[in-house]
Nucleic acid binder design. Sequence first.
DNA 1: CAGAGTGTTCGATGAAAACCATACACTCCC
DNA 2: GGGAGTGTATGGTTTTCATCGAACACTCTG
Lengths: 114, 114
Amino acid sequence: MAQRTTTSHRAAPEHTHPEDVSVQTALAALADPVRISLVRELAGSAEWSRSCGSFDVPVGKAALSHHFAVLRGAGLVEQRDEGPRRVNRLRRAEFEARFPGLLELILRDDGPAA
Amino acid sequence: MAQRTTTSHRAAPEHTHPEDVSVQTALAALADPVRISLVRELAGSAEWSRSCGSFDVPVGKAALSHHFAVLRGAGLVEQRDEGPRRVNRLRRAEFEARFPGLLELILRDDGPAA
DNA sequence: CAGAGTGTTCGATGAAAACCATACACTCCC
DNA sequence: GGGAGTGTATGGTTTTCATCGAACACTCTG
């Protein structure tokens, strides 16, 4: 049998393409401190290199799972199952095509903390 | 006495300059359907031409007043008292300087409704 | 000065969102 | 198969936010 890194009998996570996301949904997804952290940390890592539990955010894993679901629903994050963990990728190009400049604002920000 | 169009003994509205606004605050301000409507309608009108009550949004005046306060706090709107009414201006250039492209996303959007 | 028009403030209500603890499902390794 | 590791689903609590009604403040006009 051919080699498969994504062997899984789990239900694949549901993704929403950025094209199908409203501005309001996109903004709401990014208007949360925890999710901003996740996106920034994700942007600073190689694609598919970070599992959900590897992020440094001050919430339990249930809440964390919820936040990733929101990010998926906003077309910001793509997930894939790799063995026991679920690894992530920031959908940079696709999201940029749909909302030009928006991701940049989050990543490059040097303004007031809150 | 010199002519004054802004004669008022009312407390001037408190404004926040876009420079002092965090990304998170800006996004939160724009992640609301009513406020998106206000910004869009405002963008399509001449500066200082629209009083608060002249906008077509499905909320009472108490809620409307609150929404304008949020927009002021995000550096999106400037207000001035003119006789009995409070007229508005979209802080296009200043907001664009602080958050390049963001206002554009709201105004030029043609994506999914919600 | 009385009244109409305009907008803010206050208090309360309802809905949405974030969060946690627990329980469950799946994968890997022994 | 048992157990550790990882993530999701569920149920319930807390917080936050949008909204309204009513009361109040200010401006202009009659």
